[in-house]
């Protein structure tokens, strides 16, 4: 659906992120990386492979296992003129540095009356899919949309991953950039030449007229599959990929609802207090009059993620549940 002005190439989500880091580090020597196992190891999911060789140890810093200091030190460096890209290997570990993110990173500019800025990117990954159990499978994005002062970006495709990461690195605000462990090997087209994607712009990933399906991150892939299946039954689904949760692109959502009058929200995180709760209320406040059916949520179960592959699958949305929810809104 996207029209490319230049030649494209097919790369993985992992490569897309790697290229974004490489290009921004090359462009601006204030950009540096600091995290666990990002040097010779190349990152737990291989995103930083090769960067140590290109930029050296000062700009690709392997740290000890010290999440609180990684974030705190990232903040200090950002406040004093650098543009750090730090990483929390799994979002599950973020509790260890939650105080640093919530009380320091997100609030410091506001508390200081705008006297400082925090160009800090915190890369991390989340989600299920590898049966790693409760400490390596969480989707914690909703914790962060509740913290004013930090942006939350969650790309689903290689194109979005690259463009959004580059923009995030150039943004003067703190950004939590959440990747998905099951997307690193997925492939997609990206332009050969440089491009950026503005934060806060959702994208219609599939046009349709009967139901608006709002989603983000890996659930986009499941939603696309569900839409293909529904199309065979004559149901036309429009899919909106939020791409960033903060800022949230309410305008694109409303424009679609005006057309379809029906909404299903698909999210991998726990349903209670999740992203869908916020998106759903935004719709109630801004587009209630256009709705012909109650908003539906297809979300993760409210449980810690179980290890057993069979339970892990049950705990998150799948194509069948999405199809069912769409049909229900059409009843």
């Amino acid at each position: 659906m996207r029209i490319y002005m230049s030649k494209t190439k097919e790369i993985t989500y992992r490569q897309a992120l790697n290229e974004a880091l490489f290009e921004e580090m090359k462009r601006d020597e204030k950009v540096f990386l600091m995290a666990e196992d990002i040097g010779p190891y190349g990152g737990a999911y291989g995103v930083t492979l090769g960067l140590l060789e290109k930029f050296g140890e000062e700009r690709v810093r392997d740290t000890a296992i010290s999440e609180a200091a990684i974030i705190g030190a990232g903040l200090g460096a950002a406040m004093t003129g650098m543009r750090p890209v730090v990483e929390i290997m799994y979002i599950d570990f973020i509790g260890i540095c939650m105080g640093q993110i919530n009380n320091q990173v997100a609030k410091i500019r506001y508390m200081f009356g705008g006297k400082t800025k925090v160009p800090l990117v915190i890369r991390t990954e989340g989600g299920t899919g590898r049966t790693l159990g409760a400490h390596h499978s969480q989707s914690l994005e909703s914790w962060f949309i509740h913290i004013p002062g930090i942006k939350v970006v969650m790309p689903a495709t290689p194109y979005d991953a690259k463009g959004l990461l580059k923009t995030s690195i150039r943004d003067d605000n703190p950004i939590l950039f959440i990747e998905h462990k099951m997307l690193y090997n997925t492939k997609g087209e990206v332009p050969e030449e440089e491009y950026l994607i503005p934060l806060g712009q959702a994208e219609v990933k599939r046009k349709g007229s009967d139901v608006t399906l709002i989603t983000y991150s890996r659930m986009l892939l499941y939603s696309l599959e569900a839409a293909d299946e529904l199309e065979k039954e004559g149901i036309s689904v429009e899919i909106i990929d939020l791409r960033s949760l903060i800022p949230l692109d309410v305008k694109t959502i409303i424009a679609s609802i005006k057309k379809t009058n029906r909404v299903v929200i698909v999210e991998e995180d726990c349903k209670t207090g999740g992203v869908g709760a916020e998106v759903g209320m935004q719709i109630m406040e801004n587009a209630f009059d256009y709705l012909d059916a109650p908003i539906k949520r297809v979300a993760g179960a409210d449980v810690p993620m179980p290890k057993s592959p069979i339970l892990e699958k049950l705990a998150i949305p799948d194509k069948e549940r999405i199809v069912k929810a769409v049909k229900e809104t059409l009843k």
């Binding site: 049966t131 790693l132 159990g133 409760a134 400490h135 390596h136 179980p306 290890k307 057993s308 592959p309 069979i310 339970l311």
Partner: peptide
């Protein structure tokens, strides 16, 4: 437990890491 089976020491909910 490591195979995520119901007979595991944590009923297959914890796995190797738990």
């Amino acid at each position: 437990e490591i195979l995520g089976k119901a007979t595991g020491v944590c009923k297959g909910k914890g796995g190797s890491l738990h």
